[in-house]
Simulated assay, not measured.
Amino acid sequence: MSGAVPSPPPATVHPLNELDYAGVGDGTAPEIRPGVSSWLWQRYGLRIGGVMYRDGVSVNAMSSVTVDLNRSCTSYDALVGVDDMTFGFGSARFSVYGDDTRLWRSGVVRGGEAAVPVHVPLKGQRTIRLVVEPGSAWDTVTVADWAAARISCG
């Protein structure tokens, strides 16, 4: 034996729009926690700022979605913005929490603007919570997107 250290297994990528809900999945991969999570539309094909994204999730601009990671995960990545179905109206602010600590927060993103990239390291986190707040009191029904949202584990 040469004493070489084996390479770690490659990361497993979990698209947010394909996650099971806790109780439906087998508990070995990230799962959306029902009961505490807001309405969530797991989608294929959404548009932010005139750019089409293959997948992602949509929520209202007053939402909180909790994901139990169920394993060691390394990062959360997405592109966030106001869905073009709002015809350029509305605004929102996006946050990512790891357990109970805010790890990332956007500025106010307005309808028609380009998506904002998100990259959040997740080492040591057991859960993530994706929070969207309206940009103003008038924006509570704004449709907000987490496009190309991925959790990398392993």
Rank of each mutant, 00 (worst) to 15 (best):
G124W: 03
H119T: 14
W146A: 14
P121R: 05
D100C: 06
S91C: 02
T74F: 03
C73I: 05
A92E: 03
W104E: 05
P121N: 08
S75P: 07
A147Y: 05
T127G: 00
R129G: 05
A144P: 14
I128V: 15
G98V: 11
V141H: 14
S75E: 04
M85F: 01
W146S: 15
Y76W: 14
A147V: 11
I128A: 07
V108M: 03
T74R: 13
N70Y: 12
V82C: 11
T101N: 10
D83K: 02
D99G: 14
R110L: 09
A137M: 05
V141Q: 15
H119A: 13
R110S: 14
S106T: 10
A148Q: 10
D99M: 13
S95N: 07
V82H: 06
G90W: 00
S106H: 06
S136E: 09
W104M: 04
D84Q: 12
T140W: 06
V82T: 08
G124C: 08
L130S: 03
T101H: 12
L130E: 01
N70V: 10
V141F: 14
W104A: 08
F87M: 12
T101K: 15
V132K: 07
G98Y: 01
A149I: 06
Y97E: 02
Y76V: 11
V131E: 13
V143R: 07
S152H: 09
L69P: 11
G135T: 02
D100M: 07
L122N: 01
S106N: 07
D84H: 10
R105L: 13
A78D: 09
G98H: 03
L103T: 10
F94H: 09
S95E: 05
F87Y: 11
S72N: 13
T140N: 06
V120A: 12
Y97D: 04
V131A: 10
H119P: 13
C73M: 06
S75C: 04
T101S: 14
L130R: 02
V108T: 13
V116W: 02
D100E: 09
S136A: 08
I128E: 01
E113G: 12
W138K: 04
G124D: 06
D84Y: 10
D83M: 02
V116Y: 01
S152F: 07
E133L: 11
R71C: 12
L122R: 00
V109P: 15
G107L: 07
G90E: 03
G124H: 04
H119Y: 12
M85R: 05
R105K: 15
A137E: 01
V131T: 11
D139P: 14
D100L: 10
D83S: 10
E133F: 07
L103V: 11
S75T: 00
V143M: 08
F87I: 05
G135C: 04
A137C: 01
Y76L: 15
S136F: 08
R129I: 09
V96G: 03
D145G: 07
R105E: 15
